[in-house]
Design a binder for these strands. Structure first.
Length: 486
RNA sequence: GGCACGUUGGAGAAGAGGUUUAACUCACCAGCCUUUCACGCUGGCAUUCAUGGGUUCGAAUCCCAUACGUGUCACCA
């Protein structure tokens, strides 16, 4: 199944739902990668045939996501490649024409069954398909009812016997008994096509050579193959991707959805993730580079190493731990200026004016795995936290509240006219420790806890002193001294 | 329920009959570094590849069955 020497053409064909599901983004990425790894073309097509689920502005979300992630398309809305329009609702007439052609040649038929009647065909669990009630209607009756303006759909006439198979580039040979397939609806009563029909017509007309999509389509693809055959069209290569799963609170695994947390690209961005980190992470969900040595990829490196045969068959669970790791790597790779650019607005918004936010940002740079963690990490700077005597007791540095009080008492006068700069402050405290006989660690601990009132902080004692500024830091120490005395 | 697909550690995975006493990454644990945390570094973390049979001198790798999981059976995509 690798005989072709014509250029690869792939497409990303999302429904405008208003958000970009992370599984869809991954599909887009792979389709794009496949096109870019050859001399191929990548098409964006909007599948908006469901008139009841139209969401205003949804197309923009899709285009924005592709722009932000760098997945550029050669053809699509606004980029004419000679196969447009690229929005299905603007192609309505095309589908009708092809559907009627199928009826004329006996591969499809008109169906006048009402939704109510169809409803009675399903069992309690909603399972059960169409009973082919209208499949053998006489041409006279069809003509009469059509003329009478009866609502109708057009259904695909699936062979009653035999089986249909196709070759999937990932899963291999897939065979389905024809008796297990439904006479699916091709054209709905409102005149719009279903996905089942529209995508086949469009993929053919647009010259798509490789259909890349989630494996939820694995078992419906034989029906599409039959459609290609009926038209006498060459079937495309199918590349079905393993599903992206999520693990719920109950520990159960299922198709990644809202209940697993943030699953749209926008959600992830809002949660403080960097676009390229997200892309890098999902690239590795269901695919593994041949030379599996490095884990950080640029888009170009991805293109260079991408291949269909390295796509896995088994579903992958979306793991925030690893996404976090990727994100922290990408954050660390940011220059100090780039990081500051992203962190500063947040810091300035929550920190009092006397705080040295630039220095704070520098401290945060290697300690943060998402930008969204920042507020919680600097909460003790934004406002003074309540006193907690237990914090002053530290096993490793052998401190107790009493000892800390002694240390702070000794250190306080030196601080009054110290040079307020990290290195100088550090040297000062270190010297004080040496001179006084206290452990350096103990001195640092006492000072840090006194100004932070928190066990874990983004920086050591003197770094925090510097960030807080002399006035605020001294006030906090004085306050600590007072509280310790009580 | 029918059908389809899947099953290597907590997660992503390499592996495609012998040189695997199962690579690598995340997570986790320990140690080092150290003014806490983090970063960084070092080490640990599956005698076992869902289970049971079979083929073979030899199986995670081939075959069969069972179990479990997921997907799908819409005038949604």
């Amino acid at each position: 199944m690798t005989e072709h020497n014509k250029a690869i053409v792939t497409r990303f064909a999302p429904s405008p739902t208003g958000y970009m599901h992370i599984g869809n983004l991954r599909t887009a990425l792979y389709a794009w990668l496949l096109a870019r790894s050859g001399q191929g073309r990548f098409i964006l097509r909007i599948e908006d045939t469901d008139q009841e689920r139209l969401v205003p502005g949804a197309v923009q979300v899709i285009m924005d996501t592709l722009r932000i992630t760098g997945l550029d398309y050669d053809e699509g809305p606004g980029v004419d490649g000679g196969h447009g329009p690229y929005v299905q609702s603007e192609r309505k007439e095309i589908y009708r024409e092809y559907a009627e052609k199928l009826v004329a040649q006996g591969d499809a038929y008109y169906c006048f069954c009402t939704p109510e009647r169809l409803q009675t065909l399903h069992d309690a669990a909603g399972i059960g398909g169409y009973d082919r009630h209208c499949r053998e209607l006489s041409t006279d009756e069809v003509a009469r009812r059509l003329a009478a303006g009866e609502p109708h759909v057009i259904r695909q006439k699936i062979p009653l016997e035999g089986e249909t198979s196709y070759y999937d580039e990932v899963f291999g040979q897939i065979t389905l008994a024809n008796s297990d397939m439904q006479d699916q609806i091709l054209l709905k009563a409102d005149g719009f096509p279903t996905y089942n029909f529209a995508h086949v017509v469009d993929d053919h007309l647009m010259g798509v050579t490789h259909v890349v999509r989630g494996s939820e389509y694995l078992t419906s693809t034989p029906k599409y193959a039959l459609l290609y055959d009926a038209f006498g069209w060459e079937r495309p290569h199918y590349v079905h991707l393993p599903l992206l799963m999520g693990r719920g609170e109950d520990g159960k695994v299922s198709k990644l959805s809202k209940r697993h947390g943030a699953v749209s690209f926008q959600d992830l961005l809002a949660a403080g993730y960097l676009p390229q980190a997200v892309l890098n992470y999902i690239a590795l969900l269901g695919w593994c580079p041949k030379d599996n040595n490095q884990e950080i990829f640029s888009l170009d490196e991805l293109i260079a190493s991408f291949s269909i045969d390295a796509i896995s068959k088994s579903p992958a669970i979306f793991d925030y731990d690893k996404l976090n790791w990727f994100n922290s790597e990408y954050i660390k790779a940011l220059s100090p200026a780039e990081f500051a650019e992203r962190a500063l607005p947040q810091l300035k918004a929550i920190c009092p004016p006397y705080v040295d936010t630039a220095k704070l940002a520098a401290l945060l740079h290697t300690r943060v795995s998402t930008l969204a963690e920042i507020p919680a990490m600097v909460d003790f700077i934004a406002a003074r936290l309540p006193f907690d005597a237990a914090l002053y007791a530290n096993k490793k540095n052998k401190t107790t509240p009493e000892l800390c009080a002694e240390i702070l008492t000794g250190v306080r006068p030196l601080l009054s006219d110290a040079v307020w700069q990290n290195d100088a402050l550090f040297a000062l405290l270190k010297d004080y420790a040496a001179a006084s006989g206290y452990k350096a660690g103990a001195v640092m601990w006492a000072v840090r806890v006194a100004v932070a009132r928190k066990a874990i902080t983004p920086g050591g004692a003197t770094e925090l002193l510097e960030v807080l500024g002399r006035e605020e830091a001294l006030e906090r120490i004085d306050q600590a001294l007072q509280e310790l005395a009580e």
